[in-house]
């Protein structure tokens, strides 16, 4: 659990972070979003003390971070940055084993852990262990970056725009993998991004920052439905906000049982999002869809009225 109490950071006369309070529960993925220069990266780097806060308190499981030895603190917090920061003179396996080696784990244990992580992140040992970072693609390098951060099995992971430099397809894959990983590992993650779709997709909780302050925080759906002000609303996509909301809800949550009416020709999978269902309707010029399961069996139906959540009397 990470707690920030009234934390402020000043650089000279400039205030980068202005008295923010924040609580990230154990196992929660908290996304810090905002425009560049809003203080989100500074906030992240204060947690592992790469930047020392000027005022307030930051606690890790109830302990002020200032009480920890700087290096010991960082060795128990995973850290992933946009440009990976892999050591160019070390092969992949050695890069991943960095923190366990700093913690003086026995060699055999490091070796085992590196193998375990490489298979977890889809990097076959045989073809990647001895490669140097410059021989990797952007996506592979960031996988190594994530593996390195997870190496000593930290409870907490700090990620500073980890997928910001990747092409859209690779970014999509890695976001999916991170979600998958998180559903198994349940780390406490603070994730900085300016990509709102990424934040909405990954976060359990969204924290919107502007000019060093927290403007609004809460579950993604709550923010989408009830943005605190125009800034949050425009950050969340302005009029496109509805699409983002639709992308957070699954078809099966809205579908109705099959009616006795003629079955609709256009079909959508039950785990698709409402946004995808809307796209199918648009493409098929249909206002009613048949919902199918993995075996292509119809399990329900979804009308346009039902999809947009129109109340019966309107």
């Amino acid at each position: 659990m990470i707690e920030l109490f009234d934390v402020t950071k000043r650089f000279g006369s400039e205030t980068a972070v202005d008295g923010i309070s924040l609580r990230v529960e154990r196992g929660e993925l908290c996304a810090l979003v905002g425009t560049s220069g809003c203080g989100k990266s500074t906030t992240l780097r204060m947690i592992n003390r790469l930047i020392e806060h000027s005022a307030g308190e930051i606690h890790l499981d109830g302990q002020p971070v200032r009480n920890f030895d700087e290096q010991a603190l960082r060795r128990r917090i995973g850290y992933v940055i946009q440009s990976t920061g892999l050591f160019p003179h070390w092969p992949v396996a050695r890069n991943i084993g960095l923190v366990p080696r700093l913690l003086k784990w026995p060699r055999a244990r490091i070796q085992m852990r590196v193998e375990e992580l490489m298979s977890l992140l889809g990097l076959p040992m045989a073809s990647f262990a001895d490669k140097y970072p410059h021989q990797l693609s952007g996506g592979q390098a960031q996988r190594v970056g994530v593996a390195r951060a997870l190496a000593a099995d930290p409870d907490i992971l700090l990620m500073d725009e980890p997928f910001g430099a990747l092409d859209p397809i690779t970014r999509d894959t890695l976001q999916e993998e991170l979600r998958d990983l998180q559903s198994r590992l349940h780390k406490t993650i603070v994730f900085v991004t300016h990509d709102m779709d990424e934040a909405l997709r990954l976060a359990d909780r969204l924290v919107v920052m502007d000019a060093g302050r927290i403007v609004q925080q809460g579950a993604p759906l709550d923010l989408l439905r009830d943005p605190a002000d125009d800034f949050v609303a425009s950050l969340l996509g302005g009029d496109d906000r509805g699409f983002k909301e639709a992308a957070l809800t699954r078809v099966e949550e809205r579908m109705l049982p099959l009616s006795p009416r003629l079955i609709a020709r256009a079909r959508v999978h039950r785990e698709a999002t409402l946004r995808q269902a809307l796209a199918v309707m648009f493409r098929e010029h249909a206002d009613r869809l048949t919902v199918i399961d993995d075996e292509d069996m119809p399990v329900g139906e979804l009308s346009l009225r039902r999809l947009v959540g129109a109340r019966p009397h309107e």
Partner: peptide, 15 residues
């Protein structure tokens, strides 16, 4: 040296 490498080294807990 790439500042990111330096940042990562410090961030991983190297003295």
């Amino acid at each position: 040296i790439d500042p990111a490498v330096h940042e990562a080294a410090r961030g991983m807990g190297m003295s």
